[in-house]
Nucleic acid binder design. Structure first.
Lengths: 193, 193
DNA sequence: GGCCAACTAGACAAAGCATTCTAAAATGCC
DNA sequence: GGCATTTTAGAATGCTTTGTCTAGTTGGCC
């Protein structure tokens, strides 16, 4: 080792999340990221091979944090708790929540996909999340029936809570307490199986 | 009148929807729209003053069609039917559904907002939709309680059904029959008030 | 104390974009 | 048939972006 780095990989990742959370994917230009960190654009390319790599790394970091919060609850068979866990996670990770939950990877990476290692890492995370859902659903049904049960679980635990949160994540204020109630009520009225 | 137009306003609007539905907002460059229609780029500017105007016009058209399908049902006090109506509308308007339901206006217009007339037209549509929800919720509660009831209705009738549809709209295939069942069950288990 | 790899620094080149501009073509009307 | 005007047609312009390239700087180690 020789010269100490002024800017870490994480500095750029955090700046990217902040910019996307604030102004959408297009706001995260390499120059905007550099400006946010206080670095020249060239420095980013010492850590990331391309813009797609920065976005991909940021996405994977946010997604890993999210999956890390939910997967254990799914594996221990507590779908309701998993759904409700999205709220504290979003409150504690406001920037990540806006970045992760208000963007689709397909639009984030629409121009150029991230390099292969990042794509594979993301695929592993998605598989991990999927496996957690399957473990939670258990061995209920076969074939199409099983797929329906899985779609049901993903809706109840992931998509529906996020749909409840989305308007408030957009506005940017604090998440209202009745969000909790709505999720609980949803799970009371429409059980997993 | 003198020379007959080869390309109509609608040609460009439909092309824009198709491109965004296929490859996200960034795919709808002026040149891509022109290519899709078979026109030179300059011709677009005879009908629309800017790219934001094309996107805005496309968004308003899709949104008007959607609101037109749901608002009457809300006004006649049939929230369940309104929620279920999203399915046939999406099946009959696959391209519009992907364009409208998988994109947020905030990301679509993040760079430059559409010109004032289109913005106002969109605001009117949003007000119309909001009024339909308020009419459906009726006079239940005051102040915060009323706002909660409204958020509840919007979730049950709009956001939740779309959350159910989203994975399938993404994949692009036909919408599965169990989507209908899930929406019905959701409304059975978690009533409006 | 000097060496040298890793880094900062920012100008630069190349590509793609929205928008404009000039020229030509079409068509209802006189 | 010729004119006025709308439209097609597509090249040209200027801006913004990503990614590269050359210089110069830092700081641990011999």
């Amino acid at each position: 080792m020789v010269r100490t780095a002024r800017f870490t990989e994480d500095d750029f990742i955090e700046a990217t999340m902040a910019l996307v959370a604030e102004g959408g994917p297009a706001a995260a230009t390499m120059q905007a990221i550099a400006r946010q960190v206080g670095a020249p654009t060239g420095s980013i390319y010492h850590r990331f091979e391309s813009r797609a790599a920065v976005l991909g790394a940021a996405w994977n970091a946010a997604y890993a944090s999210f999956v890390g919060a939910l997967a254990p609850l799914l594996h221990s068979g507590r779908p309701r708790e998993a759904a409700l866990a999205i709220l504290p996670w979003s409150r504690e990770n406001a920037r990540r929540a806006r970045f992760l939950l208000l963007n689709e990877p397909v639009t984030l990476f629409e121009d150029t996909p991230p390099p292969a290692p990042l794509r594979q890492a993301l695929e592993r995370l998605e598989d991990e999340f999927d496996a957690a859902f399957r473990a939670c659903v258990g061995a209920c049904g076969e074939g199409d029936l099983r797929e329906e049960a899985l779609a049901r679980a993903k809706f109840l635990i992931f998509d529906a809570p996020i749909a409840i949160l989305r308007p408030h994540l957009m506005k940017g204020g604090t998440l209202p307490p009745f969000a909790e109630r709505m999720i609980a009520e949803l799970h009371a009225g429409m059980p997993l199986a």
